[in-house]
Each structure stands twice: as structure tokens, then as C-alpha cells.
């Protein structure tokens, strides 16, 4: 029984991390209709910035150490991730949209970008680096749940009630009609990437709070495709769906670890992924979009 609760707690903590990253994937896919494979590299970059800042300012802040460091790392990671995201969108993805390329072309370009970023990051260093711990496990757990819930609520409000949020949904529906309304598509799409990458940054910092090890393969291998799988399971394009998917995957993974079968977690996660997609291709909370003839 004790194992169960430990697994549950770890699962929720891990799940909140996956949920945040899944939200990032989901927003971009929902609005720009492309799978941003490079998202995993944004995660690594965010983690790197956080690590760098933590190492740099390790001794500076006094009593506000924990909270201060957390905010500092968050801020730094978000800023850098957002910049990288904007550059990627501007130089790699926007020209494709202008040309009217197919989705697969966009997907392959995203893979290309992720390889480039991965290569650059790995060239810097390929050791595993220790991240300083700011909080004990329980506090970190609470922080992650609170942050995830807060962001979910914020995002939902943004997308449903604000002008720009509604404009984002309009752009995802019909780009041409949106232009006629005076909506600047390029700006909206860039904004989407900004939000997505900011979420990735927040997610990775929260992750590092509990698992304080950083490698340059963090986004691509350690965390890997799990957030993406989470987004798809929950229903890509659906915000609560991504969060649900994130928690589900997190719990699956941690239960596997707790019961000693973490070597099989890939099989379990991808297995559930395939099964869910077979019976509900739009994801658990997704909308079934039928092709109109």
C-alpha cells in the first residue's frame, strides 16, 4: 500500500512536468498544425540555462535562496527558450508556411532543427551535471502541482476569454478568414511558439527541482517523446487533455519504477499510447474531426 502512495505521489509530480511540456506541444500543434519536434531541444536549452544560472548565483542570494533561485532560473530559462523559439519559427518554419508546404515537410524540418540544436548542445559538453537542490521533495511536489494547475487555468482563460486567445483559435480554424478580420497570422503563430516554449522552460525547471541531474540529452533522451505521447493521448489541441495525458503518463512511469519494472516503462507507455489511439484516435478528451468530402 505504501508503495502505491509513493508511486502516486511521484507520478503526480512527474506528471505535472509532463503536463506542462505536453501543453507546449499541444498549443503549437493545435494552432500551427505541426509537431514541433524541436520542443525537446527547447526543454534541454531551458534546463541548461537554469543549471547555468543556478551554478553562477549559487552563493549570492541569502535567506531568499530557495524561492529566489527558483524565480531566477525560471526567468532565465523562459527568456532564452522564447528567443530560440522565435528564431526557429522565423527562419525555419515560417518560410515553409509561406510556401504552403505539406505537414510532413514541416515535421521533417522540425526534426532537422531538433538535430541541429541537439548537436550544438552536445558539442558543448556531454557529461552529467549536478543541479543544486533548492527544495526538499515534498515542497517541490507541492510547487509542481500548484504551478501546473495555475498554468492550466491561466491558459484556458487566455484562450477562451481574451481577444488574442480567441484570435489564436480563429487562426487555427481558418487562416484566410482570420486575415480578413485584421488578425496578423504571423504574429499569432509566433506568439503560440512563445507560449509553448515558455511552458517547456517552466516544465524543465520544475523537473530539475526533483531530479537534480542535467545532461545535454535531457530533452531528447531522458524526457524524450513522453510529453508528446501525453499530449496525443489526452487529445492534442485540448488543454485539459494534455494535462490529463501528462499525469497519466507520469503515473504510469512512476508506478513502473516503484514496482521495479522501469526497464519496461517504454513498452508500457507506448503500448497504452497505441491502444488508446486505436480506440480513440482523437485522444481521450479530443474532438473527433471528420473529414468532409
Amino acid at each position: 500500500m505504501e508503495l502505491f502512495f509513493e508511486g502516486l505521489k511521484n507520478g503526480l509530480a512527474m506528471g505535472s512536468v509532463f503536463a506542462l511540456m505536453a501543453l507546449g506541444y499541444s498549443m503549437v500543434y493545435g494552432i500551427v498544425k505541426m509537431i514541433n519536434f524541436a520542443h525537446s531541444e527547447f526543454i534541454t536549452i531551458g534546463g541548461f540555462v537554469a543549471f547555468f544560472l543556478a551554478a553562477l548565483f549559487h552563493d549570492v542570494l541569502g535567506w531568499a535562496y530557495s524561492v529566489g533561485m527558483l524565480l531566477l532560473c525560471l526567468a532565465g530559462a523562459i527568456v532564452v527558450c522564447v528567443i530560440i523559439a522565435i528564431l526557429t519559427e522565423r527562419f525555419a518554419y515560417r518560410p515553409l508556411r509561406k510556401k504552403g508546404s505539406s505537414r510532413i515537410t514541416a515535421l521533417i524540418t522540425a526534426i532537422g532543427v531538433s538535430y541541429i540544436l541537439n548537436g550544438i548542445l552536445n558539442a558543448i559538453n556531454n557529461k552529467q551535471l549536478q543541479f543544486p537542490t533548492f527544495f526538499d521533495n515534498d515542497t517541490a511536489f507541492i510547487i509542481s502541482i500548484v504551478v501546473t494547475a495555475a498554468l492550466l487555468i491561466l491558459l484556458t482563460f487566455f484562450v477562451k476569454k481574451t481577444k488574442v486567445g480567441i484570435a489564436m483559435r480563429a487562426v487555427s480554424e481558418n487562416e484566410e478568414a482570420a486575415k480578413l478580420m485584421g488578425i496578423n497570422n504571423n504574429f499569432i503563430i509566433a506568439l503560440t511558439f512563445v507560449i509553448g516554449s515558455a511552458l517547456a522552460a517552466i516544465g524543465v525547471v520544475i523537473y530539475l527541482l526533483r531530479v537534480p541531474f542535467f545532461t545535454f540529452e535531457l530533452g531528447s533522451s531522458t524526457i524524450g517523446l513522453y510529453p508528446f505521447v501525453a499530449a496525443v493521448i489526452g487529445g492534442i489541441g485540448s488543454l485539459p487533455g494534455s494535462v490529463l495525458g501528462g499525469f497519466l503518463i507520469g503515473i504510469l512511469k512512476e508506478f513502473a519504477a516503484v514496482f521495479g519494472i522501469s526497464a519496461w516503462s517504454d513498452v508500457i507507455v507506448y503500448g497504452i499510447f497505441v491502444i488508446i489511439l486505436l480506440f480513440k484516435p482523437a485522444g481521450l478528451l479530443g474532438k473527433d474531426v471528420r473529414e468532409k468530402v
Binding site: I166, A167, A170, N174, A177, M181, G182
Partner: peptide, 19 residues
């Protein structure tokens, strides 16, 4: 027509006054 199918009628109208 090209209305925004998944947005409500009211949201569509609000998009008209976006600027």
C-alpha cells in the same frame, strides 16, 4: 461563408471587431 466553425456565434462576431 468561412465562419470560424469551432468558435461560438458571439466569438465570431467579436473577431469581426478584432481591430
Amino acid at each position: 461563408r468561412q465562419v470560424f466553425a469551432n468558435l461560438t456565434v458571439q466569438e465570431n462576431l467579436e473577431m469581426g471587431s478584432y481591430r
